[in-house]
Amino acid sequence: MTASDLVDLSADSSPGGRAADGRGSTDSRRPVRTALPGRPGRRARARLRALREQPGRLAYLTLVAVLFFSGFPLYYSFVVASRDNSALATVPPPVLPGANLVENVERVFATVPFGTALVNSVIVSGTVTASVVFFSTLAGFAFAKLEFKGAKVLLVSVVATMMVPVQLGVIPLFMLMVELEWTDTLWAVIAPGLVNAFGVFFMTQYLRGALPGSLIESARMDGASTFRIFWQIVMPAARPAAVVLGVLTFLTAWNDYFWPLIVLSSPENQTVQVALSTLSGGYVTDQSLVLTGTMLATLPLLAVFALLGKYMISGIMQGAVKG
């Protein structure tokens, strides 16, 4: 598949793209803002409703089963985290929470510098998220609303890079970090995450629809510089998409493991995921200890998910790509 195919595929003609609201709109200039999935217009909704099938009992039963399988492993990690290690060896295995949670949490903090790891992860994910959102909005604005030579080719190359498995460049990347003397520092983890192609593409798509060209024209006539237009008009207009992109980026950064494992070595510089793997890497695996750590590392994400999960869903449905 060529990159231009992909631009095509993920832009107007894409079923996963903006037309996803059921209106079937393929006009690229149509405001995306009103076309967030799950919010079809009233008339379209009525039409949809008339045709969509009423779900039967079997449908709900299946959904409940899916929900059970989705939630159970996470629930079970809580069960193990609240139990004494020896309780896990009983037959049948425990399926209800026990009373050792606090003790296990204390043991996690005593075994690895988990607090530091949490702080490190917040620093890394926070910086990466802010940077990705800012630079993606900036580039997205240029691609969506400004005219310049080579814009089309450059945008195609952005989309093409979404598919490039950059993870395979770890060896020279590591050598580069050695050169920069950044190994075993958070910089080594932050730097490669500062921009990503998906963000640029996502923002371009969004701003194309959300930003009326006339608004920019009139700002120009008032003598506003391009940067001022960006700062005062584009940034506020991009806010809904920025939330979506921000949540997705934060999750990806928080969960990143392969590269941090390679480049961060000392315990006080580890991120949460690396600290977790240290916990589970002992000779005698202490399951309740490991799963308490897992639970602690997952809880912040579950909180974010509970608050902003709706936005994540709309982001993914607008044609998100695995991070």
Binding site: V66, S70, V80, G309
Partner: peptide, 20 residues
Amino acid sequence: MGMLLPNVASVVAVAVIFSQ
């Protein structure tokens, strides 16, 4: 949201939980 829930957990968390 129920369907997306597993996606929130990190690969490390998933691997650790399922190993158990």
